[in-house]
Design a protein around this nucleic acid. Structure first.
Lengths: 205, 205
DNA sequence: ATGAAAGTTGAACCGGGTTTCAACTTGTGA
DNA sequence: TCACAAGTTGAAACCCGGTTCAACTTTCAT
């Protein structure tokens, strides 16, 4: 699970390779701990013992329990984006792009249920990070939808319609991730195909 | 905010009118406390002082902090359902029914942001209640979609497609509630109309 | 009227987890 | 080689809120 270093709390960045390695160990351990136990049942001791460092070392890199969590949210948010981005290159058309995005997202959720949980829990532990995550995700979808309009592949019903569609698509993806990725298990391609058919043609007739 | 009494913890039901009144006060206070502060920053003292009862009284009706929360989740789940149900009677057709359901849900979220928050937080505090809430909600949508198929108003692509559509619609509703009900504010009818147009006709062309 | 059941009270107990810190170790540049 | 900066350590201080309980008050059926 390679990961570039996430910015720790202000003024607490590691200054040597040794420090970087330790920070990375703590972040990896925190992901496990929070993912398995949730924010509250997690403890700093739990994190540091998984990371095999002393309790105090934690505070070399983070100001508080909330701070690691926030760092993790930024990290995970980036990971989701970076996972999906390459998978939607070279789609047949703009709506097909959304199918691929969902399929890619579902596959990501399969492998990283902890990430799903952490982003969800951010609503309560790191509200600002949570909001940023979804607002930037929505903004990316809006951009894609505007391209679809520009290419004449989608009806243009004004900016509010676009915003509504983007959030609708995002909500759809998240809940399909919960139902078919975290709770159940279904072929990602199949689920994405069904959802996309609905998106493309609608339900009517 | 009238509310019928929610079952408290087992063997802790009130046996007199006085007890019922106290239980109701505690539940109302708990809704406020949890809605404003979130589960973890909430405290029993916070609840009982809002309710203007002594600390110990809390334990006459509930076994623990988690137990009130769970009772609240059941209650809120029922409230959402009861709010939407009458509003979708006598719709033009089965797909229009979904428009009305969303519109009704959005209006509910406007008035009760706390409820949105509590149900979301249930994912971590009362996972079983959370799952039940969404699974029963999805089941209701599935039933409606099956009716739509039966009436020849919707394409039939098999049971998986129906399940996917139901969860997609639900996720869409929840996220539109977050974006246009909790965070921002938009005319519920307008948002529901845009979302429903997408659902009915799809995005294409 | 009366006593047993139901309900109320809040001080005190209790455990657990975050955060601090001063001593110690490691690495590096001059 | 030496000294200073960076990093590590874990015991203990500190804090806080959930839960208990025995004494007290209210209600209500007989």
């Amino acid at each position: 699970m390679a990961r570039t270093i996430s910015p720790a709390s202000k003024g607490k960045a590691p200054r040597t390779p040794r420090g970087e390695k330790t920070l990375r160990k703590i972040l990896d351990a925190a992901l496990l701990e929070f993912g398995q136990r949730g924010f509250h049942d997690s403890s700093i001791v739990g994190i540091t013992s998984r990371a095999k460092v002393a309790l105090g070392t934690f505070y070399t890199y983070f100001d508080s329990k909330e701070a690691v969590f926030a760092a993790l949210v930024r990290d995970m948010s980036r990971q989701v984006r970076d996972h999906v981005a390459p998978d939607i290159e070279g789609s047949l058309d703009e709506i097909d792009r959304e199918r691929r995005a969902l399929s890619s997202y579902l596959r990501f959720v399969f492998e990283h249920k902890e990430v799903y949980r952490i982003i969800d829990e951010a609503e309560f532990v790191d509200p600002a990070g949570f909001r940023t995550h979804y607002e930037t995700a929505a903004a990316r979808i809006v951009t894609r939808l505007e391209e679809a309009v520009a290419k004449g592949q989608m009806r243009d019903d004004g900016p509010l319609a676009t915003e509504v569609r983007a959030w609708a698509i995002m909500g759809m993806n998240v809940f399909l991730g919960l139902r078919f990725g975290v709770w159940g298990r279904q072929d990602a391609e199949l689920v994405a195909a069904h959802a996309n058919a609905m998106l493309r043609k609608g339900l009517e007739r």
